Amino acid sequence: MASQGTKRSYEQMETDGERQNATEIRASVGKMIDGIGRFYIQMCTELKLSDYEGRLIQNSLTIERMVLSAFDERRNKYLEEHPSAGKDPKKTGGPIYKRVDRKWMRELVLYDKEEIRRIWRQANNGDDATAGLTHMMIWHSNLNDTTYQRTRALVRTGMDPRMCSLMQGSTLPRRSGAAGAAVKGVGTMVMELIRMIKRGINDRNFWRGENGRKTRSAYERMCNILKGKFQTAAQRAMMDQVRESRNPGNAEIEDLIFLARSALILRGSVAHKSCLPACVYGPAVASGYDFEKEGYSLVGIDPFKLLQNSQVYSLIRPNENPAHKSQLVWMACNSAAFEDLRVLSFIRGTKVSPRGKLSTRGVQIASNENMDAMESSTLELRSRYWAIRTRSGGNTNQQRASAGQISVQPAFSVQRNLPFDKPTIMAAFTGNTEGRTSDMRAEIIRMMEGAKPEEMSFQGRGVFELSDERAANPIVPSFDMSNEGSYFFGDNAEEYDN
Protein backbone atom coordinates (compact mmCIF):
# COMPACT_ATOMS: atom_id res chain seq x y z
CA MET A 1 0.00 0.00 0.00
CA ALA A 2 1.36 3.39 -0.99
CA SER A 3 0.66 5.13 2.31
CA GLN A 4 2.50 2.45 4.27
CA GLY A 5 5.10 4.99 5.38
CA THR A 6 2.55 7.14 7.18
CA LYS A 7 1.21 4.26 9.24
CA ARG A 8 2.77 2.69 12.30
CA SER A 9 3.84 -0.88 11.69
CA TYR A 10 1.77 -3.48 13.46
CA GLU A 11 4.54 -4.27 15.85
CA GLN A 12 4.37 -0.64 16.97
CA MET A 13 0.61 -0.93 17.39
CA GLU A 14 1.19 -4.17 19.24
CA THR A 15 3.56 -2.51 21.69
CA ASP A 16 2.05 0.99 21.92
CA GLY A 17 5.41 2.26 20.67
CA GLU A 18 6.22 5.56 19.07
CA ARG A 19 8.33 5.30 15.92
CA GLN A 20 10.98 2.68 16.51
CA ASN A 21 13.54 1.10 14.26
CA ALA A 22 13.30 -2.58 13.34
CA THR A 23 15.59 -3.74 16.14
CA GLU A 24 13.67 -1.81 18.79
CA ILE A 25 10.39 -3.16 17.46
CA ARG A 26 11.70 -6.73 17.56
CA ALA A 27 12.88 -6.19 21.13
CA SER A 28 9.60 -4.70 22.36
CA VAL A 29 7.54 -7.46 20.74
CA GLY A 30 9.97 -9.95 22.31
CA LYS A 31 9.45 -8.31 25.69
CA MET A 32 5.69 -8.72 25.29
CA ILE A 33 6.11 -12.44 24.47
CA ASP A 34 8.46 -12.88 27.46
CA GLY A 35 5.79 -11.42 29.73
CA ILE A 36 3.10 -13.79 28.46
CA GLY A 37 5.50 -16.72 28.85
CA ARG A 38 6.51 -15.81 32.42
CA PHE A 39 2.86 -15.33 33.38
CA TYR A 40 1.98 -18.74 31.95
CA ILE A 41 4.80 -20.49 33.84
CA GLN A 42 3.65 -18.89 37.09
CA MET A 43 0.01 -19.89 36.49
CA CYS A 44 1.03 -23.50 35.81
CA THR A 45 2.86 -23.48 39.15
CA GLU A 46 -0.18 -22.00 40.95
CA LEU A 47 -2.44 -24.63 39.41
CA LYS A 48 0.09 -27.44 40.02
CA LEU A 49 0.04 -28.52 36.38
CA SER A 50 2.43 -31.17 35.10
CA ASP A 51 4.52 -30.34 32.03
CA TYR A 52 2.05 -32.23 29.81
CA GLU A 53 -1.00 -30.55 31.38
CA GLY A 54 0.68 -27.17 30.94
CA ARG A 55 1.06 -27.85 27.22
CA LEU A 56 -2.64 -28.69 26.84
CA ILE A 57 -4.23 -26.04 24.64
CA GLN A 58 -7.53 -26.17 26.57
CA ASN A 59 -5.69 -25.24 29.80
CA SER A 60 -3.91 -22.47 27.94
CA LEU A 61 -7.24 -21.02 26.75
CA THR A 62 -8.68 -21.06 30.29
CA ILE A 63 -5.62 -19.29 31.72
CA GLU A 64 -5.62 -16.70 28.91
CA ARG A 65 -9.35 -16.09 29.45
CA MET A 66 -8.84 -15.61 33.18
CA VAL A 67 -6.29 -12.85 32.75
CA LEU A 68 -8.33 -11.14 30.02
CA SER A 69 -11.37 -11.20 32.28
CA ALA A 70 -9.33 -9.90 35.24
CA PHE A 71 -8.32 -6.84 33.19
CA ASP A 72 -11.72 -6.21 31.57
CA GLU A 73 -12.41 -3.01 33.51
CA ARG A 74 -15.70 -2.12 31.88
CA ARG A 75 -17.20 -5.53 32.42
CA ASN A 76 -15.85 -5.70 35.97
CA LYS A 77 -17.48 -2.37 36.75
CA TYR A 78 -20.73 -3.52 35.15
CA LEU A 79 -20.71 -6.76 37.17
CA GLU A 80 -20.18 -4.84 40.41
CA GLU A 81 -23.11 -2.51 39.61
CA HIS A 82 -25.45 -5.25 38.31
CA PRO A 83 -24.83 -8.24 40.57
CA SER A 84 -26.19 -11.46 39.09
CA ALA A 85 -27.00 -14.54 41.14
CA GLY A 86 -24.16 -16.98 41.59
CA LYS A 87 -21.52 -14.79 39.91
CA ASP A 88 -18.83 -13.24 42.05
CA PRO A 89 -17.69 -10.09 40.21
CA LYS A 90 -14.32 -10.22 41.96
CA LYS A 91 -13.48 -13.76 40.88
CA THR A 92 -12.55 -15.39 37.60
CA GLY A 93 -11.91 -18.98 36.62
CA GLY A 94 -12.69 -21.81 34.27
CA PRO A 95 -12.10 -25.48 33.53
CA ILE A 96 -8.61 -26.89 34.10
CA TYR A 97 -7.95 -30.39 32.79
CA LYS A 98 -5.74 -32.84 34.66
CA ARG A 99 -4.67 -36.40 34.01
CA VAL A 100 -5.78 -38.59 36.93
CA ASP A 101 -5.50 -42.41 36.89
CA ARG A 102 -5.00 -42.56 33.11
CA LYS A 103 -8.12 -40.43 32.59
CA TRP A 104 -8.74 -36.75 31.90
CA MET A 105 -10.61 -34.94 34.67
CA ARG A 106 -12.15 -31.48 34.58
CA GLU A 107 -11.60 -29.26 37.59
CA LEU A 108 -13.26 -25.84 37.89
CA VAL A 109 -10.87 -23.31 39.41
CA LEU A 110 -11.71 -19.89 40.84
CA TYR A 111 -9.26 -17.06 41.56
CA ASP A 112 -9.47 -13.50 42.79
CA LYS A 113 -9.12 -11.19 39.81
CA GLU A 114 -6.84 -9.06 41.97
CA GLU A 115 -4.52 -12.05 42.43
CA ILE A 116 -4.43 -12.77 38.68
CA ARG A 117 -3.66 -9.11 37.97
CA ARG A 118 -0.83 -9.27 40.50
CA ILE A 119 0.69 -12.36 38.84
CA TRP A 120 0.36 -10.78 35.37
CA ARG A 121 1.98 -7.50 36.44
CA GLN A 122 4.75 -9.34 38.23
CA ALA A 123 5.50 -11.30 35.04
CA ASN A 124 5.55 -8.01 33.11
CA ASN A 125 7.92 -5.99 35.33
CA GLY A 126 5.08 -4.28 37.15
CA ASP A 127 3.34 -2.99 34.00
CA ASP A 128 -0.25 -3.63 32.94
CA ALA A 129 1.29 -4.82 29.65
CA THR A 130 -1.80 -4.10 27.57
CA ALA A 131 0.01 -5.21 24.42
CA GLY A 132 0.31 -8.75 25.79
CA LEU A 133 -3.40 -8.80 26.65
CA THR A 134 -4.31 -7.64 23.14
CA HIS A 135 -2.02 -10.29 21.71
CA MET A 136 -4.01 -12.99 23.51
CA MET A 137 -7.28 -11.44 22.33
CA ILE A 138 -6.06 -11.64 18.73
CA TRP A 139 -5.09 -15.30 19.21
CA HIS A 140 -8.62 -16.04 20.48
CA SER A 141 -10.06 -14.06 17.58
CA ASN A 142 -7.96 -15.97 15.03
CA LEU A 143 -9.09 -19.25 16.59
CA ASN A 144 -12.74 -18.18 16.36
CA ASP A 145 -12.25 -17.11 12.73
CA THR A 146 -10.95 -20.58 11.90
CA THR A 147 -13.59 -22.45 13.87
CA TYR A 148 -16.85 -20.64 13.14
CA GLN A 149 -18.50 -19.14 10.11
CA ARG A 150 -20.39 -15.99 11.07
CA THR A 151 -23.46 -16.66 8.91
CA ARG A 152 -26.00 -15.51 11.45
CA ALA A 153 -24.18 -12.30 12.30
CA LEU A 154 -23.84 -11.45 8.60
CA VAL A 155 -27.50 -12.10 7.85
CA ARG A 156 -28.65 -10.08 10.87
CA THR A 157 -26.88 -6.98 9.59
CA GLY A 158 -28.21 -7.46 6.06
CA MET A 159 -25.01 -8.83 4.55
CA ASP A 160 -24.55 -11.98 2.48
CA PRO A 161 -23.09 -15.01 4.33
CA ARG A 162 -20.85 -15.61 1.32
CA MET A 163 -18.94 -12.48 2.30
CA CYS A 164 -17.37 -14.33 5.24
CA SER A 165 -13.82 -13.70 3.96
CA LEU A 166 -14.28 -10.08 5.10
CA MET A 167 -15.06 -11.03 8.70
CA GLN A 168 -11.61 -11.37 10.24
CA GLY A 169 -11.58 -10.23 13.87
CA SER A 170 -15.37 -10.16 14.18
CA THR A 171 -15.22 -11.55 17.73
CA LEU A 172 -12.50 -9.18 18.99
CA PRO A 173 -13.59 -7.19 22.04
CA ARG A 174 -14.01 -3.44 21.64
CA ARG A 175 -11.07 -2.76 23.92
CA SER A 176 -8.50 -4.36 21.63
CA GLY A 177 -6.97 -1.01 20.64
CA ALA A 178 -4.96 -0.12 17.53
CA ALA A 179 -3.50 -3.61 17.16
CA GLY A 180 -7.04 -5.02 17.20
CA ALA A 181 -8.31 -2.48 14.66
CA ALA A 182 -5.46 -3.38 12.30
CA VAL A 183 -6.52 -7.03 12.05
CA LYS A 184 -10.24 -6.40 11.61
CA GLY A 185 -11.60 -7.20 8.16
CA VAL A 186 -13.70 -4.79 6.08
CA GLY A 187 -16.85 -6.80 6.86
CA THR A 188 -16.19 -6.63 10.59
CA MET A 189 -15.92 -2.84 10.51
CA VAL A 190 -19.03 -2.58 8.32
CA MET A 191 -20.96 -4.79 10.72
CA GLU A 192 -19.93 -2.71 13.74
CA LEU A 193 -21.00 0.48 11.95
CA ILE A 194 -24.33 -0.97 10.81
CA ARG A 195 -25.14 -2.08 14.35
CA MET A 196 -24.41 1.43 15.54
CA ILE A 197 -26.57 3.07 12.85
CA LYS A 198 -29.44 0.67 13.60
CA ARG A 199 -29.32 1.64 17.26
CA GLY A 200 -29.51 5.26 16.19
CA ILE A 201 -32.57 4.53 14.06
CA ASN A 202 -34.34 2.74 16.91
CA ASP A 203 -33.28 4.98 19.78
CA ARG A 204 -33.91 8.69 19.28
CA ASN A 205 -31.44 9.73 21.94
CA PHE A 206 -28.54 7.66 20.67
CA TRP A 207 -26.80 10.58 18.93
CA ARG A 208 -28.02 13.24 21.38
CA GLY A 209 -26.72 14.88 24.51
CA GLU A 210 -23.41 14.36 26.28
CA ASN A 211 -23.33 10.62 25.52
CA GLY A 212 -24.32 11.28 21.92
CA ARG A 213 -21.16 13.31 21.42
CA LYS A 214 -19.04 10.36 22.54
CA THR A 215 -21.10 8.07 20.33
CA ARG A 216 -20.58 10.38 17.37
CA SER A 217 -16.82 10.52 17.81
CA ALA A 218 -16.70 6.71 18.12
CA TYR A 219 -18.73 6.49 14.88
CA GLU A 220 -16.34 8.82 13.05
CA ARG A 221 -13.31 7.00 14.41
CA MET A 222 -14.66 3.65 13.17
CA CYS A 223 -15.41 5.22 9.77
CA ASN A 224 -11.81 6.42 9.56
CA ILE A 225 -10.45 2.98 10.48
CA LEU A 226 -12.55 1.44 7.72
CA LYS A 227 -11.59 4.18 5.25
CA GLY A 228 -7.92 3.42 5.95
CA LYS A 229 -8.45 -0.19 4.94
CA PHE A 230 -9.67 0.69 1.44
CA GLN A 231 -7.07 1.04 -1.30
CA THR A 232 -9.01 2.98 -3.97
CA ALA A 233 -9.96 6.65 -3.99
CA ALA A 234 -13.61 5.99 -4.83
CA GLN A 235 -14.09 3.63 -1.90
CA ARG A 236 -12.45 6.15 0.42
CA ALA A 237 -14.57 9.01 -0.91
CA MET A 238 -17.67 6.97 -0.21
CA MET A 239 -16.47 6.41 3.37
CA ASP A 240 -16.10 10.18 3.77
CA GLN A 241 -19.77 10.50 2.79
CA VAL A 242 -20.81 7.91 5.36
CA ARG A 243 -18.71 9.56 8.06
CA GLU A 244 -19.98 13.08 7.40
CA SER A 245 -23.66 12.13 7.34
CA ARG A 246 -25.66 14.40 9.68
CA ASN A 247 -28.01 11.67 10.76
CA PRO A 248 -26.81 8.21 9.75
CA GLY A 249 -29.64 5.97 8.57
CA ASN A 250 -30.64 3.48 5.89
CA ALA A 251 -28.81 5.31 3.11
CA GLU A 252 -25.55 4.85 5.04
CA ILE A 253 -26.33 1.19 5.69
CA GLU A 254 -26.86 0.71 1.94
CA ASP A 255 -23.56 2.46 1.18
CA LEU A 256 -21.70 0.33 3.73
CA ILE A 257 -23.10 -2.94 2.37
CA PHE A 258 -22.18 -1.78 -1.14
CA LEU A 259 -18.64 -1.07 0.05
CA ALA A 260 -18.39 -4.44 1.81
CA ARG A 261 -19.39 -6.23 -1.40
CA SER A 262 -16.93 -4.18 -3.41
CA ALA A 263 -14.17 -5.35 -1.04
CA LEU A 264 -14.62 -8.91 -2.32
CA ILE A 265 -12.83 -7.76 -5.47
CA LEU A 266 -11.19 -4.43 -4.54
CA ARG A 267 -9.75 -5.87 -1.35
CA GLY A 268 -9.02 -3.88 1.76
CA SER A 269 -5.69 -4.01 3.55
CA VAL A 270 -6.04 -6.05 6.69
CA ALA A 271 -3.10 -6.98 8.92
CA HIS A 272 -2.25 -10.60 9.71
CA LYS A 273 -0.31 -11.56 12.81
CA SER A 274 0.73 -14.94 14.06
CA CYS A 275 -0.42 -14.95 17.66
CA LEU A 276 0.27 -18.24 19.44
CA PRO A 277 -1.32 -19.71 22.57
CA ALA A 278 0.38 -18.90 25.88
CA CYS A 279 1.33 -22.58 26.29
CA VAL A 280 3.78 -22.12 23.38
CA TYR A 281 5.48 -19.05 24.88
CA GLY A 282 5.64 -20.46 28.43
CA PRO A 283 7.80 -23.54 27.75
CA ALA A 284 10.05 -21.50 25.40
CA VAL A 285 10.74 -18.97 28.16
CA ALA A 286 11.14 -21.80 30.69
CA SER A 287 13.79 -23.40 28.49
CA GLY A 288 15.84 -20.22 28.82
CA TYR A 289 15.04 -18.49 25.52
CA ASP A 290 15.17 -14.70 25.90
CA PHE A 291 12.66 -13.22 23.45
CA GLU A 292 13.53 -9.62 24.27
CA LYS A 293 17.25 -10.18 23.70
CA GLU A 294 16.78 -12.29 20.56
CA GLY A 295 13.98 -10.11 19.17
CA TYR A 296 10.69 -11.40 17.78
CA SER A 297 8.31 -10.52 14.96
CA LEU A 298 4.70 -11.57 14.47
CA VAL A 299 4.90 -11.28 10.70
CA GLY A 300 8.13 -13.04 9.76
CA ILE A 301 9.82 -16.38 10.32
CA ASP A 302 9.78 -16.27 14.15
CA PRO A 303 6.35 -17.85 14.80
CA PHE A 304 7.16 -20.61 12.29
CA LYS A 305 10.44 -21.41 14.05
CA LEU A 306 8.73 -21.38 17.43
CA LEU A 307 5.98 -23.77 16.28
CA GLN A 308 8.61 -26.00 14.64
CA ASN A 309 10.07 -26.67 18.10
CA SER A 310 6.94 -26.70 20.25
CA GLN A 311 4.93 -29.56 21.70
CA VAL A 312 1.25 -28.65 22.13
CA TYR A 313 -1.44 -31.15 23.06
CA SER A 314 -5.20 -31.05 22.73
CA LEU A 315 -8.12 -32.98 24.14
CA ILE A 316 -9.86 -34.95 21.39
CA ARG A 317 -13.52 -35.97 21.49
CA PRO A 318 -14.38 -39.58 20.62
CA ASN A 319 -15.31 -39.01 16.95
CA GLU A 320 -12.84 -36.26 16.12
CA ASN A 321 -9.84 -36.57 13.83
CA PRO A 322 -6.61 -35.36 15.50
CA ALA A 323 -5.12 -34.36 12.13
CA HIS A 324 -8.15 -32.16 11.48
CA LYS A 325 -7.90 -30.61 14.94
CA SER A 326 -4.26 -29.85 14.13
CA GLN A 327 -5.20 -28.12 10.88
CA LEU A 328 -7.73 -25.94 12.70
CA VAL A 329 -5.17 -24.77 15.26
CA TRP A 330 -2.39 -24.43 12.65
CA MET A 331 -4.58 -22.07 10.61
CA ALA A 332 -5.44 -20.07 13.73
CA CYS A 333 -1.78 -19.77 14.72
CA ASN A 334 -0.97 -18.41 11.27
CA SER A 335 -3.96 -16.06 11.13
CA ALA A 336 -5.00 -17.79 7.93
CA ALA A 337 -8.73 -18.50 8.19
CA PHE A 338 -9.51 -16.59 4.99
CA GLU A 339 -6.40 -17.40 2.99
CA ASP A 340 -6.50 -19.47 -0.19
CA LEU A 341 -6.28 -23.15 0.80
CA ARG A 342 -3.90 -23.90 -2.07
CA VAL A 343 -1.40 -21.37 -0.71
CA LEU A 344 -1.80 -22.86 2.77
CA SER A 345 -1.38 -26.44 1.54
CA PHE A 346 1.90 -25.49 -0.13
CA ILE A 347 3.27 -23.68 2.93
CA ARG A 348 2.19 -26.36 5.36
CA GLY A 349 3.35 -29.21 3.16
CA THR A 350 0.16 -31.21 3.73
CA LYS A 351 -3.26 -30.71 2.21
CA VAL A 352 -5.37 -28.11 3.98
CA SER A 353 -9.08 -28.95 3.65
CA PRO A 354 -12.22 -26.81 3.76
CA ARG A 355 -13.94 -26.42 7.14
CA GLY A 356 -16.90 -28.57 6.17
CA LYS A 357 -14.64 -31.55 5.45
CA LEU A 358 -12.99 -31.49 8.87
CA SER A 359 -14.15 -33.97 11.51
CA THR A 360 -13.55 -31.66 14.42
CA ARG A 361 -15.53 -29.27 16.54
CA GLY A 362 -14.07 -26.25 18.31
CA VAL A 363 -11.05 -26.49 20.58
CA GLN A 364 -12.93 -25.53 23.73
CA ILE A 365 -14.82 -28.21 25.62
CA ALA A 366 -18.26 -27.28 26.97
CA SER A 367 -18.90 -27.78 30.69
CA ASN A 368 -21.61 -30.36 30.02
CA GLU A 369 -19.47 -32.60 27.81
CA ASN A 370 -18.63 -36.01 29.20
CA MET A 371 -14.93 -36.40 30.06
CA ASP A 372 -14.94 -40.21 30.27
CA ALA A 373 -14.15 -40.87 26.64
CA MET A 374 -11.77 -37.89 26.19
CA GLU A 375 -8.37 -38.68 24.75
CA SER A 376 -5.53 -36.29 24.07
CA SER A 377 -3.11 -36.06 21.18
CA THR A 378 -0.24 -33.95 19.88
CA LEU A 379 -1.16 -31.04 17.62
CA GLU A 380 0.97 -31.05 14.45
CA LEU A 381 1.72 -27.33 14.05
CA ARG A 382 4.89 -27.51 11.95
CA SER A 383 5.22 -26.21 8.40
CA ARG A 384 7.25 -27.14 5.33
CA TYR A 385 8.00 -23.52 4.34
CA TRP A 386 7.51 -20.09 5.84
CA ALA A 387 6.19 -16.92 4.23
CA ILE A 388 5.86 -13.27 5.15
CA ARG A 389 2.45 -12.17 6.43
CA THR A 390 0.78 -9.44 4.39
CA ARG A 391 -1.45 -6.52 5.12
CA SER A 392 -2.27 -5.68 1.55
CA GLY A 393 -5.35 -7.26 0.07
CA GLY A 394 -3.40 -8.01 -3.11
CA ASN A 395 -4.78 -7.18 -6.53
CA THR A 396 -7.61 -9.22 -7.79
CA ASN A 397 -8.47 -12.12 -9.89
CA GLN A 398 -11.05 -14.49 -11.08
CA GLN A 399 -11.11 -18.14 -10.21
CA ARG A 400 -13.59 -20.96 -9.98
CA ALA A 401 -15.36 -20.18 -6.73
CA SER A 402 -17.74 -21.97 -4.46
CA ALA A 403 -21.25 -21.99 -3.14
CA GLY A 404 -19.92 -20.90 0.24
CA GLN A 405 -17.16 -18.35 0.50
CA ILE A 406 -16.75 -16.35 -2.72
CA SER A 407 -13.46 -14.57 -2.13
CA VAL A 408 -10.31 -14.76 -0.01
CA GLN A 409 -8.34 -12.33 2.16
CA PRO A 410 -4.65 -13.16 1.70
CA ALA A 411 -2.63 -13.77 4.86
CA PHE A 412 0.69 -14.45 3.14
CA SER A 413 2.64 -12.39 0.69
CA VAL A 414 2.90 -15.15 -1.92
CA GLN A 415 2.38 -14.92 -5.69
CA ARG A 416 -0.92 -16.39 -6.85
CA ASN A 417 -4.18 -15.82 -8.67
CA LEU A 418 -6.70 -14.62 -6.12
CA PRO A 419 -9.91 -16.60 -6.34
CA PHE A 420 -13.28 -14.89 -6.46
CA ASP A 421 -16.45 -15.70 -8.28
CA LYS A 422 -16.88 -12.61 -10.43
CA PRO A 423 -20.34 -13.32 -11.90
CA THR A 424 -21.74 -14.02 -8.43
CA ILE A 425 -20.21 -10.88 -6.96
CA MET A 426 -21.15 -8.63 -9.89
CA ALA A 427 -24.75 -9.89 -9.85
CA ALA A 428 -25.15 -8.05 -6.56
CA PHE A 429 -24.34 -4.74 -8.25
CA THR A 430 -27.15 -4.46 -10.77
CA GLY A 431 -29.16 -1.29 -11.01
CA ASN A 432 -28.63 0.45 -7.73
CA THR A 433 -26.36 3.34 -8.69
CA GLU A 434 -28.64 6.27 -7.99
CA GLY A 435 -28.51 8.61 -5.03
CA ARG A 436 -25.81 10.90 -3.72
CA THR A 437 -23.01 8.36 -4.07
CA SER A 438 -23.91 7.42 -7.66
CA ASP A 439 -20.68 8.64 -9.28
CA MET A 440 -18.54 6.82 -6.73
CA ARG A 441 -20.62 3.67 -7.07
CA ALA A 442 -20.29 3.76 -10.84
CA GLU A 443 -16.53 4.23 -10.54
CA ILE A 444 -16.21 1.32 -8.07
CA ILE A 445 -18.27 -0.98 -10.30
CA ARG A 446 -16.14 0.01 -13.29
CA MET A 447 -12.97 -0.93 -11.40
CA MET A 448 -14.47 -4.24 -10.33
CA GLU A 449 -15.48 -5.09 -13.86
CA GLY A 450 -11.98 -4.27 -15.02
CA ALA A 451 -10.35 -6.74 -12.63
CA LYS A 452 -8.49 -9.15 -14.92
CA PRO A 453 -8.43 -12.91 -14.40
CA GLU A 454 -4.89 -13.37 -15.65
CA GLU A 455 -3.24 -10.87 -13.29
CA MET A 456 -0.95 -12.32 -10.67
CA SER A 457 -1.10 -10.97 -7.17
CA PHE A 458 2.05 -10.46 -5.06
CA GLN A 459 4.18 -10.78 -8.20
CA GLY A 460 7.42 -12.68 -7.61
CA ARG A 461 6.77 -13.14 -3.90
CA GLY A 462 7.51 -16.62 -2.73
CA VAL A 463 7.81 -18.88 0.26
CA PHE A 464 11.10 -19.71 1.97
CA GLU A 465 12.86 -22.75 3.38
CA LEU A 466 12.89 -22.71 7.18
CA SER A 467 16.70 -22.55 7.02
CA ASP A 468 16.45 -19.31 4.99
CA GLU A 469 15.97 -16.87 7.86
CA ARG A 470 16.97 -13.81 5.84
CA ALA A 471 14.38 -14.60 3.15
CA ALA A 472 17.14 -14.61 0.53
CA ASN A 473 15.87 -17.32 -1.84
CA PRO A 474 12.17 -17.06 -2.62
CA ILE A 475 10.50 -20.18 -3.99
CA VAL A 476 7.49 -19.26 -6.11
CA PRO A 477 5.05 -22.06 -5.34
CA SER A 478 2.97 -24.10 -7.74
CA PHE A 479 -0.66 -24.73 -6.86
CA ASP A 480 -2.96 -27.61 -7.58
CA MET A 481 -5.80 -25.71 -9.23
CA SER A 482 -8.11 -28.72 -9.09
CA ASN A 483 -8.41 -28.18 -5.34
CA GLU A 484 -10.88 -25.86 -3.72
CA GLY A 485 -9.59 -22.41 -2.73
CA SER A 486 -12.12 -21.40 -0.09
CA TYR A 487 -12.08 -22.67 3.48
CA PHE A 488 -15.77 -22.08 4.19
CA PHE A 489 -16.72 -23.79 0.94
CA GLY A 490 -20.46 -24.66 0.77
CA ASP A 491 -20.00 -24.98 4.41
CA ASN A 492 -21.57 -26.35 7.56
CA ALA A 493 -19.27 -24.95 10.25
CA GLU A 494 -20.88 -24.30 13.60
CA GLU A 495 -22.13 -20.83 14.34
CA TYR A 496 -20.18 -18.68 16.80
CA ASP A 497 -22.15 -18.12 20.01
CA ASN A 498 -20.90 -15.80 22.71
Rank of each mutant, 00 (worst) to 15 (best):
M1H: 13
Y10E: 00
T15P: 00
D16A: 09
E18K: 05
E24P: 04
R26F: 12
A27K: 15
S28Y: 01
I33D: 02
G35W: 08
Q42K: 14
S50G: 15
T62G: 13
L68M: 10
Y78I: 12
H82E: 00
P83Q: 15
S84H: 01
A85S: 13
A85W: 01
P89Q: 01
G93T: 10
I96L: 15
K98C: 10
N125A: 09
D128N: 14
I138D: 09
N144A: 14
D145K: 11
Y148R: 02
R150M: 08
T151R: 07
D160P: 05
C164M: 12
Q168K: 08
S170E: 06
S170M: 06
A179I: 02
V183Y: 09
V190P: 03
E192S: 05
K198N: 11
N202W: 09
D203E: 12
R204S: 01
G212P: 06
K214W: 11
T215R: 06
R221C: 06
C223P: 10
R243M: 09
A251N: 08
D255V: 02
D255K: 07
F258L: 11
H272C: 00
K273G: 00
P277G: 11
C279P: 05
C279A: 13
C279Q: 10
Y281A: 11
A284G: 00
K293E: 14
Y296D: 10
I301A: 06
N309M: 03
R317A: 06
N334Y: 11
S335A: 14
R342N: 09
F346D: 05
I347H: 06
K351Q: 13
S359A: 09
N368F: 06
N368M: 13
D372V: 03
E380I: 04
E380V: 02
T390K: 07
T396N: 07
A401M: 00
A401C: 01
Q405G: 05
I406V: 14
S407K: 10
P410W: 00
S413K: 11
D421C: 05
M426E: 00
M426A: 07
F429L: 06
T437Y: 02
S438H: 15
M440C: 11
A442H: 00
E443S: 08
I444E: 03
M448H: 05
E449G: 08
P453L: 10
M456H: 04
Q459N: 13
R461K: 10
G462Q: 00
V463E: 14
L466Q: 13
P474T: 14
S482N: 15
A493K: 14
N498P: 00
